[in-house]
Structure formats: structure tokens, C-alpha cells
Write a protein that binds this DNA or RNA. Sequence first.
DNA 1: GCCAACGTTGGC
DNA 2: GCCAACGTTGGC
Length: 154
Amino acid sequence: MPNHWLFKSEPGAYSWDDLVRDRVAEWDGVRNFTARNLLRDEIKTGDLVLFYHSNAKPPAVVAIAEVVRDGYPDHTAWDPASDHPDPKSTPAKPRWYMVDIVPREKLAREVSLDEVKTVPELSDMVLLRQGRLSVQPVRPAEFETIVRMAGTPR
DNA sequence: GCCAACGTTGGC
DNA sequence: GCCAACGTTGGC
């Protein structure tokens, strides 16, 4: 069984449409140890990802992506020309990790953060409990609930 | 643009 | 190892 996750991205930086255009993305630039540990150790090929637009109007889950490569070192960390270099990370001792994802399907309609907050069975989502974590686990039931909401008119 | 929450850094 | 200072995220 695949595991389920939620990845956040600011659409101004990298949107769902960007992923569709690129067909595959290296999920680079994550610079948080909790998220790093998930990327390095837990998130595996075949896992499903809720793609969330943060800092959007409204912030919302917009689509489903799929992991196509297990965690590997984020090479942008030791590239001084990248958007998020970290001199403490080297090829010999990588500090940050990433996975590759591909677009799987856009939700029939997006499910906003406000809407997530109204659903009792979603009240324990990491999205609500620990709002700032940009790569986070999602329970299978939570994943199913959101997908179902996306197919159901308000 | 503001600011609360919270993760990270570094002095001690 | 503690904790103050600082930086970032992200909702509003």
C-alpha cells in the first residue's frame, strides 16, 4: 500500500500547472529537518501526494501527485547558484534530501483550507496542527476524505 | 503588510 | 544543554 503525504508549494514559486508542464519535478529546496527526514527515509516511489497551494487565494489542496523516485540528496544545496544553497551540505555529506514527483490528477475542484477546517474527521491533520510543515504525512482516511470532498459539490 | 507560530543558530 | 535572538512560513 502506498503511503500518503501533503506537499506545499506557493503557486507563485512552483504551481500545479508548472508540474503538469514539466511532467516531473525534483522536490528540491526543503530546508527543514522534520521534512528532510520524511523525504530521506519515509517517502517512497508509488506514494501519493496531495499537492497544496500555500499563500494562495484561497490556500487549498488542488491535485494529486505521485512519487517516482525515493529520497536522494538535494544537489541544489551545494550549488551556490541555486535558489537555496546551504554551505553545510556537500556531496560527501548531504544534509538535505528530495524525491521526484509526477502529476497524477487534478482535483475536480480544489479543497480549501477553510473547508478542511470545517470537517471533524480532518481536525487532526498535520496541516491544521502544525501548519508550517511543508512536507507532511496524511492518514489514508484523511486522503480519501479530501478526494471525496473534491468530487462533491459544496 | 502584519504577525503568530515555531524552527534554527550560536553564545554562554 | 539552555535559551535569547533571529529568520521563515504562511494565514489573514
